[in-house]
Amino acid sequence: MAETATLPARRSPLDGVWTPGDHGAVGPGGPGVTMTRRLGLSAVQLDARAGTADAVRHAIAAALGVALPAAGHATSGGDVRALWLGPDRWLLMAADGFGLEPKLRDAAGPAGGIVVDQGHGRAILRLEGPAVRDVLAKGTGVDLHPRAFAEHAVAQTGLFHLTATLDRRRGTGRFDVHVMRGFAVSLFESLCEAAAEYGYRLV
Rank of each mutant, 00 (worst) to 15 (best):
T4W: 15
D15C: 15
V17A: 12
P20A: 09
G21V: 09
H23K: 07
H23E: 04
V26M: 01
G30C: 11
P31L: 01
P31H: 12
G32L: 08
V33D: 00
V33S: 02
T36S: 14
R37A: 04
G40Y: 14
D47I: 04
D47K: 06
R49G: 13
G51D: 09
T52E: 03
D54E: 14
R57L: 05
A59L: 05
A59K: 04
A61V: 08
A61K: 10
V66I: 06
A67F: 07
A71C: 13
G77L: 08
V80K: 00
W90P: 00
L91V: 01
M93Y: 00
A95R: 15
G99P: 08
G99T: 05
L100G: 05
P102A: 02
P102M: 05
D106L: 13
A108M: 02
P110C: 12
P110L: 09
I114W: 01
A123F: 04
L125G: 01
R126C: 00
V132N: 01
T140S: 07
T140R: 04
G141N: 13
G141D: 12
L144R: 02
A150D: 13
A153H: 09
A153Y: 00
Q156A: 07
F160R: 05
F160A: 11
T163D: 15
A164T: 06
A164Q: 06
T165I: 07
T165L: 15
L166N: 03
R168N: 14
R169N: 14
R170C: 10
F175Y: 07
F175W: 03
D176R: 10
V177G: 04
G182P: 09
A184K: 00
S186G: 07
L187Y: 10
C192E: 14
A195D: 05
E197L: 08
Y198V: 12
G199S: 08
V203R: 12
